[in-house]
């Protein structure tokens, strides 16, 4: 099949970006969106042009590396699918696809379709864990967890941290991502001791990163490749509200967002 890929090309954050059209004559319907970009990149390299930079790694929809907008939809038209698993048979012969990076103030631009999602790591640093050092654990079966509880925790824990939720949200909110971790740990008995503090700190970090607020639009869950339910945001708000009251005497500190790639300096 034939397709036209119209791709955002921008060498670095300081350069001026533009859309470039690439007609593709020989697209196999069985190939994935990323394999289609591989084919394009091979031909660009052969012509001496610089290939399109895009993020990818596992190509099984689990590492969360890949992702860009396809004609305005994060990860493209197929529900519950990352671009690495989106096969071209879902597009029509002759269609034009517009590929552009996640656009969010909190995801600084890097190159072409690549952005910087370190803000997500910092949200996890702000409490997205159970503080249990190696060696402190009781026997696995000493902490019973009901099957339904475990399943609900797993539904939230399935988040791959790709950032599609932020890109899809008109407010640029990271509530689905943050809520997913707060819900995963908040549902389980292991997460109870730090539940208040976790919610307060993670929400504070989310705001410090410049992500927008949630207004219950639901675009995030619509594009989420793991179909994280909107309910996790309600849970985040619930835990935040209780936590903010109970932790009202605690000073909440946030981590300074890093904006460049020079490492090692504080």
């Amino acid at each position: 099949m034939k397709l036209t890929l119209t791709i955002w090309r921008q060498k670095d954050p300081g350069a001026k970006g533009k859309f470039v059209r690439y007609p593709m004559d020989n697209v196999n319907p069985e190939m994935s969106m990323l394999e289609c970009l591989d084919v394009l990149n091979e031909s660009l390299a052969e012509r001496g042009e610089e290939p399109v930079a895009f993020e990818h790694d596992c190509r099984e929809g689990i590492c969360g590396s890949c992702g860009f907008m396809i004609s305005g939809v994060a990860h493209g038209p197929l529900p519950a699918t990352t671009v690495c698993q989106l096969t071209m048979r879902h597009f029509k012969d002759g269609e034009e696809l517009v590929l552009e990076p996640w656009r969010s103030r909190s995801f600084p631009f890097v190159k072409d379709l690549v952005v910087d999602r370190r803000a997500f790591d910092r949200i996890i640093q702000a409490g997205g864990y159970v503080s249990v050092s190696t060696g402190n654990a009781p026997d696995g079966n000493a902490i019973p967890v009901g099957k339904e509880e475990a399943d609900r925790a797993m539904d939230a824990a399935a988040c791959i941290g790709c950032g599609a939720c932020v890109a899809a949200c008109p407010n640029g909110s990271a509530a689905l991502f943050t809520g997913a971790k707060i819900a995963h740990l908040g549902i389980l008995p292991q997460g109870q001791p730090e539940r208040d503090r976790r919610a307060v700190r993670m929400v504070a970090q989310m705001h410090a990163e410049g992500f927008g607020s949630c207004t219950n639009i639901g675009e995030c869950t619509g594009v989420c490749p793991k179909e994280i339910p909107l309910e996790v945001i309600a849970r985040m708000n619930h835990d935040y509200l209780y936590g903010a009251w109970r932790e009202r005497r605690q000073v909440v500190t946030t981590i300074a967002p890093a904006t460049d790639w020079e490492f090692g300096k504080k």
């Binding site: 925790a153 995963h184 292991q190 997460g191």
Partner: peptide
């Protein structure tokens, strides 16, 4: 044991 304590949601019986 360590992973359970960290909150890894392993499959459970009822």
């Amino acid at each position: 044991d360590q992973c359970v304590a960290q909150g890894v949601p392993f499959a459970r019986e009822y």
